[in-house]
């Protein structure tokens, strides 16, 4: 916001360009210097988002595939619900998890509020519908191709689900990637349930929000660059896996 706003102001243009240059310098400096605090934040960000992703994949792949291969009353409603929940506002999820985990909440006794576990729960809730909805679409397309073969071979629902998930594995990497992207970039929910506590629940996005509010835009931008670099690396890895699959005609 600051950058967009300032770029419209000619008087501040030099200053902003300096900010960008400073941010890149700082970003590389931070990474190259092996700044312990920075790495702690990066590791926690990855831990939280990857854990949430793992939970979401287990639930989302199963639910999405189940909805794709079975016919039951209310199936249409389930599909609409998945699709609607893809756009869940993070702050709303954060608020719900906060109410659930706060002292007065039903799970308050677990003492999970302001811990990485609470952040994992919030992110998992946020991205599970994304994983489930995209999985349903991919598996349904594949199932329309395999349906008669599976019927002919007499496969049970679980056997069919297993075969479909295996054969769609490279497409599902993209689904997981979409979920990871949403999780790692999310700030609202983790801020509410994590509290951005230094050395405990501070992740990349909450750190960026904090530095921005303190006015240290260069540092905020540097953290943003590191965050982007992580996302790009993960994307590049997934893309190369898909390309390998396409070469082998599996995808």
């Amino acid at each position: 916001m600051y950058i967009l706003h300032s770029c419209g102001n000619l008087r501040n243009k030099r200053c902003n360009l300096q900010d960008f240059a400073e941010a890149f310098r700082l970003a590389f400096g931070l990474v190259l210097s092996g700044d312990r605090d920075l790495f702690e934040i990066i590791v926690l960000s990855l831990q939280v988002s990857l854990s949430a992703l793992m939970i979401s994949c287990v639930i989302g792949f199963t639910l999405g595939t189940l909805v794709a291969v079975t016919r039951f009353p209310g199936r249409g409603l389930a599909v609409v619900t998945f699709n609607t929940l893809m756009g869940l506002p993070p702050v709303v999820v954060g608020l719900l998890v906060y109410l659930l985990l706060s002292r007065a909440g039903p799970l308050g006794t677990l003492g999970l509020l302001y811990t990485p576990t609470a952040m994992i729960i919030a992110q998992a809730i946020l991205i599970t519908p994304i994983v489930a909805a995209l999985t349903r679409q991919i598996i349904e397309d594949l199932f329309s191709e395999y349906d008669e073969l599976f019927q002919s071979l007499g496969l049970s629902v679980w056997q069919a689900m297993g075969a479909l998930l295996w054969d769609a594995r490279y497409s599902l990497i993209t689904v997981a990637l979409a979920g990871f992207g949403r999780a790692i970039a999310e700030v609202g929910a983790v801020m509410i349930v994590g509290g951005n506590i230094d050395h405990l629940t501070r992740v990349m996005t909450t750190a960026i929000a904090l530095e921005t509010s303190k006015g240290d835009l260069a540092l905020a931008l540097a953290l943003g660059i590191v965050l982007l670099a992580i996302s790009m690396t993960v994307n590049a890895l997934a893309l190369s896996m898909r390309a390998t699959a396409a070469r082998q005609a599996y995808a």
């Binding site: 191709e145 395999y146 008669e148 073969l149 002919s152 075969a163 054969d167 769609a168 005609a249 599996y250 995808a251």
Partner: peptide
């Protein structure tokens, strides 16, 4: 049953 258009798994 063998189908007119073979349905092969992505394997």
């Amino acid at each position: 049953l063998v189908f007119q258009k073979p349905v092969l798994l992505r394997r």
